[in-house]
Nucleic acid binder design. Structure first.
Lengths: 181, 181
DNA sequence: GCAGAAGTAGACAATTTTGTCTATTGTTTT
DNA sequence: AAAACAATAGACAAAATTGTCTACTTCTGC
């Protein structure tokens, strides 16, 4: 049965995102989910295997989320607006798919496994690359400079919103990009 | 004597930045520095006290570094150039003051102490605010929109350079900001 | 030179964390 | 209903981590 496996991923995803991966032990996940330790280790070889499964699920959810937000935009201006309004909604904890805002899970995870782990950092890099491709596909008049600008400003807006605890960065991102669209 | 205290901060700073704070134990710091455990706990009440001292020193170093880089700029265009060329130099590991590039230490630390710790996140917020003030002071023609743009794009450039392992983001940041100066 | 301060080496305690294993109970599937 | 499979509770091992303490040595200022 894959129901328990899914529950573990869901609970771990929530706890990891909220507290940081290294701050959450296996036992915490087991306590919150009410699932037995043996069951976890039947489904996942190790904590790292669970982490990878969580990253993968969050990546898929995030890609679906952003694709939906950008669906049917008719101009680059509209693209920028949709994207950053969606980000603002996330910052304001109004996006259930992504959970209460605690920054970008992939940036956070890269930071946590700075020196050591490779698989996690590489996965996060791949994630950012695929998000970029989704944005590129939604662009009406393809412009490499605009794409770079959107991606850099997106990262800056997410990071600033988190570290500086300031949800207004999303609107500021739109203001900055207005000169481009 | 404060020599040992300084050595501990220097070694811890290097190790924390390279590997992440939670990935480095007290014993690692002691082994690398060759200093006795008792000495560390004579100078610092706890690991957290050492972390705070490291954050403080890195903050001071970073502020001095950026002030020096922006010293004597004569236009907003020059300000943008100086800032992002300096960042690129950091990304290319050519800034000894900041050490080999592993992203922004303050963003990384905020990510590591996501849910729990307050003092660390608050300090990181304060750091970002003060960096902003340094940039604001260097601006020739004061413009709030430009200041927002620079700060957001700076964060985006640093984060992208780190997560995507791409040093070209600094130049792209200049390109984007060219529309403003 | 000597007294007091600072540093050393590392054993030890207490706690936490990952991962294994066993004995037992539920739950499917045929 | 029986056999095969999945889940449980939690004891246990092994390692890591923070922090304390003791006995001993080295440095430094007067």
């Amino acid at each position: 049965m894959n129901k328990k496996r899914q529950q573990l991923i869901d609970i771990a995803s929530m706890l990891f995102y909220k507290n940081g991966i290294n701050s959450i032990g296996i036992n915490e996940i087991l306590n919150v989910s009410g699932i037995a330790k043996k069951t976890l280790y039947n489904h996942f070889e190790s904590k790292e295997a669970l982490i990878m499964a969580v990253l993968e699920q969050r990546h898929n959810h995030f890609i679906s989320w952003i694709e939906e937000k950008l669906e049917g935009v008719n101009s680059n201006k509209e693209l920028v607006n949709c994207l950053f309004i969606a980000l603002e909604s996330w910052f304001l904890n109004s996006e259930p798919t992504l959970g209460d805002f605690h920054g970008c899970f992939f940036i956070n995870s890269t930071a946590e496994f700075s020196g050591s782990n490779h698989r996690i950092s590489i996965f996060c890099r791949k994630h950012k690359h695929q998000v970029r491709q989704v944005i590129a596909r939604s662009m009406i008049n393809k412009s490499p400079l605009l794409l770079d600008a959107i991606c850099i400003i997106k990262e800056g807006v997410i990071t600033s919103a988190y570290v500086e605890n300031d949800t207004s960065t999303a609107r500021k991102g739109i203001s900055v990009l207005e000169k481009f669209v």
